[in-house]
Design a protein around this nucleic acid. Structure first.
Length: 418
RNA sequence: GUGAGUGUAGCCAAGAGGCCUAAGGCGCUAGUUUGUGGCACUAGAGAUCGAGGGUUCGAAUCCCUUCACUCACCCCA
């Protein structure tokens, strides 16, 4: 049997209410903060992700869907949202707009990973980017949007974690040095991965989950303690703004992120529930990224939010989004003559914004009524010989079980409750 | 890439070598007298028991291979 590729999903009609709810709620929050929607292509040149995300990241090393097109172009399915947004910023000359440029997106993300709960090869992210402003005020704004989104969706019991990993060209070096010095005393006791991380990505030493490495985490130096004056100011101002909002956060010195472009502020929102793939929002500042992919030096900050993970959380908290399908009026009909009336009537009803279904062809009236009932119809219109003769419509109010013989405009008024 | 678990109709499932030409439930279709639903009752359709091979007189049940799904590690949203 042909089946969908591993790690992908069909989003069935019954699931759509979750998606619509999230799409609408997130867009509304963003727009309230002056953010505007950006859509970028499903695939980009492979180079964008290599240069943007970083060669040492797992995403680039083993998770991209890369292919050659017929013109031998090396293309990669969108592996994350920030680099494409920055590419679009550069390519469309957005530096000429008022800064910061505030953008949000809803996009498919493709990563070749082994699927498990909360992780898929094609997943969907909602995200925002604020590009062209290096002030902590924008950090606060971005984080506020993240927490607002969680709030309007009604997901309870989440925690906001914040850290600063310093600037790439100022204090990060100092911190990495003290981290490496600290860990170099314990090399034999660390897991293989961590030994590799010492060379390739020392920050990641901090989120190793191997048992043997845990004892060293406790006393590992904190990045916050190595911040230079500017980064420290930035961090403290941000916390001050968050305090003024009475927004609860937890400073987490072990919070580092898996993409190379982050600097200064990094943050995540996690639910308190058990589970490993549970970060629902993750983001941070990326002041070097735009220059890295060929633009002028431009600061930026943003976050990504996993929609499937949001839905998992809505469900585990029994949050039901509003239904999206209106109850249809069903037109029951007996005979070909009736159909010649039913078809134009259905058009007329729909033109009055009434959701209308003509009952299936060639069925008994009983079957047609059953059909209407299982479609949750409030009103059923019946057209048979009698009605044709009288030039009326028999309407049944399915909730009250009462019937009326009405002309077309009275029928419409009844259904619209005018 | 590594490890563990699971694969029986659209969904949930019984079944543990012959009683399985595979139970039951949901859902689906139809009927329960004349043109009327929801409940109830009755009937029906729907399964090469994930696939391939082997053992056996006999396999959904045992063995091998393979595929898929799920969960965990890694990493991330």
């Amino acid at each position: 049997m042909l089946q969908r590729p591993r790690g992908t999903a069909d989003i069935l009609p019954n699931e759509q209410k979750y998606w619509k709810f999230i799409h609408e709620a997130t867009a509304k929050v963003c727009e309230k903060f002056g953010y505007k929607r950006l859509d970028t292509p499903q695939f980009e040149s492979k180079d964008l992700f290599i240069r943007g995300v970083g060669t040492q990241t797992d995403i680039v090393q083993k998770e991209t869907y890369t292919f050659q097109d017929k013109g031998n172009e090396e293309l990669t399915l969108r592996a994350e949202g920030t680099a494409p947004a920055c590419r679009a910023y550069i390519e469309n000359g957005m530096k000429n707009l008022q800064q910061p440029v505030r953008l949000y997106y809803h996009a498919s993300i493709f990563r070749y990973e082994r699927p498990q709960s909360g992780r898929y090869r094609e997943h969907h992210q909602f995200g925002i980017e604020a590009i062209g402003d290096d002030s902590p005020l924008i950090d606060c704004e971005v984080i506020q949007i993240a927490t607002d989104v969680i709030e309007v969706l009604g997901i309870p019991n989440t925690s906001l974690f914040i850290n600063s990993i310093g600037g790439a060209s100022c204090c990060r070096k100092d911190y990495l040095l003290s981290l490496k010095t600290y860990y170099s005393n314990h090399l034999e006791l660390l897991c293989n991965d961590c030994n590799n991380r010492m060379e390739n990505n020392p920050l990641r030493l901090l989120d190793c989950k191997q048992k043997q490495c845990q004892p060293f985490l406790e006393d590992a130096p904190h990045s916050i303690d190595s911040l230079c004056q500017e980064c420290r100011d930035h961090h403290e101002k941000l916390l001050g703004y968050l305090d003024s909002l009475q927004l609860a956060y937890i400073i987490n010195s072990k919070l580092v992120r898996g993409l190379d472009y982050y600097n200064k502020t990094v943050f995540e929102i996690q639910p308190e529930t058990e589970g490993s793939q549970n970060t629902i929002i993750g983001g941070g500042r990326y002041d070097g990224l735009i220059e890295q992919i060929g633009g002028q030096s431009t600061p930026g900050i943003g976050f990504g939010c996993g929609i499937e993970r949001l839905i998992l959380n809505l469900k585990s908290n029994n949050i039901e989004p509003p239904e999206i399908y209106e109850k249809p009026v069903v037109i029951c009909h007996m005979g070909e003559d009736a159909l010649n009336i039913a078809v134009p009537l259905s058009k007329k009803l729909r033109s009055n914004n009434i959701h209308t279904i003509i009952a299936p062809y060639g069925k008994s009236i009983r079957s047609q009524m059953r059909y209407a009932s299982s479609n949750d119809s409030d009103y059923v219109v019946i057209i048979g010989e009698e009605e044709i003769k009288q030039k009326t419509y028999r309407v049944k109010d399915m909730n009250k079980s009462t019937e009326y013989d009405l002309n077309e405009s009275d029928l419409i008024n009844l259904i619209l409750k005018i």
